[in-house]
């Protein structure tokens, strides 16, 4: 079973003469434990593809299946609790780490667990374990403002992994990092994809960062042009 299945996904913004097709007939499948890159220049539609898979942007047409659950079939599936699916099945990593500034590193990971209904004590233990695994055991009580870029991004990765999602969506996760930190983050994602059996989709426009991906989808003008 695939972790992510996208069939002929199309997203059109606006109506009539002002309509803009951001993604047209995109299809892809990602297995659990796979690290996949969606590579393309700015405005190519790669983020729209990611947000449609991530239940943020409603697809105009096409089907999206996450971990065996159909979430979109020519629009969102009726009766689907989008927030619940996001909580339980998807982890997000952002370009800017998007940590909550008034929570410590530990609390930033705990919040994702508590939102998903986990008891505080259990959430604390899981968050601590994750952060220690990412070599952040000494930064548990540090606020994001006092973390380096690489540390903050690792906390964001820990938060994305906290609920053991089947799918992790990363939007330009290395854009705010220098090359060395960027490569470290990509290596970490690769390791985690294998360890956690999560499908990781990374949107990037940086060709230097595509080493180590299992597959690469090239996106141009809203279409998947090919797969490497």
């Amino acid at each position: 079973m695939y972790a992510v299945e996208v069939e002929r996904l199309t997203k059109i913004y606006g109506h009539g003469e002002t309509a803009v097709t951001a993604i047209a007939d995109a299809s892809l499948q990602v297995k659990p434990g796979e690290l996949v890159a969606i590579l393309g220049p700015s405005g190519s539609g790669k983020t729209t593809l990611l947000t449609s898979i991530g239940l943020i942007n409603e697809p105009t047409r096409g089907r999206v299946i996450l971990d065996g659950t159909t979430i979109a079939d020519d629009g969102w599936r009726k009766g689907l609790d989008l927030k619940r699916v996001r909580r339980e099945k998807i982890g997000f990593i952002f370009q800017a780490h998007n940590l909550i500034p008034f929570l410590t590193a530990l609390e930033n990971v705990m919040v994702a667990l508590e939102i998903n209904g986990m008891a505080r004590r259990e959430a604390r233990a899981r968050a601590t374990e994750l952060l220690e695994a990412l070599n952040l055991g000494h930064r548990l009580e540090t606020y994001p403002a006092f973390l380096s870029g690489g540390e903050a991004q690792r906390v964001a990765i820990a938060r994305a992994l906290a609920n053991r999602p089947k799918v992790i969506l990363a939007d330009e996760p290395t854009a705010a990092l220098d090359t060395e930190n960027g490569k470290n983050v990509m290596a970490l994602l690769k390791k985690l994809a294998v360890e956690h059996r999560s499908a990781i989709l990374v949107v990037t426009h940086d060709h230097r960062m595509v080493e180590g991906f299992d597959r690469i989808f090239d996106v141009r003008d809203g279409r998947i042009m090919g797969e490497r």
Binding site: G54, K83, R86, R87, F92, I100, P101
Partner: peptide, 16 residues
């Protein structure tokens, strides 16, 4: 705003 958007993205309910 960004914190709220992030919370929503990671699945926070409206009551949070």
């Amino acid at each position: 705003i960004r914190t709220i958007a992030t919370l929503k993205l990671i699945g926070a309910r409206n009551r949070v």
